[in-house]
Amino acid sequence: MARKKKYAMFIDTLKCVGCSACVYACKSENQVPEGFCRDWVVQKTEGTFPHLSQLIRSERCQHCENAPCVTNCPTGASYYPGDGTVQVDRNLCTGCKACIAACPYDARYIHPVGFADKCTFCQHRLKEGLQPACVTACPTETLKLVDLMENSSTIEDLVNGRQIVKDKVHAGTKPKLFWLV
């Protein structure tokens, strides 16, 4: 029997230079239509000249454990396949956009065909034993997809005592993108 998985992504903000290779890799891999994206990069600069600090974050669907898109989806098109991800079944989707309104991370868009679409953690690649396209392309090795059910030592090595930031935790969504700052 296949072991249960729980995928999450660790994103090292110190390594990230914000080049957006992740975005382009995703767009080709998943044939994301022109004018939309499943992942994106946010650059945040704080302070006044010359005392500045910068944080760069590659962002995408958080694959929340308590995903408002899933609870708000009227047809069950957004669902948990059981590997820790959140997926959209485009055969069930009516394009009502409730999931888009529900997502605190604004991670979804409507594909021109009519269904809601977003990052899948490249589920199709994971099934083939490959890493997601963004993770593979990233020149700075900023992105790491981790199975939280697997040995925690990998995770500890990855975190290495650093602070972890999660986005909008007060939304209660239990997001699964972890930014190392």
Partner: peptide, 18 residues
């Protein structure tokens, strides 16, 4: 956490058509 409710669907197609 459960999505809550039932879904009548013969199959699930969550994958992208890459």
């Amino acid at each position: 956490v459960l999505g809550g409710g039932f879904v009548l669907s013969p199959y699930r197609q969550g994958e992208v058509t890459s």
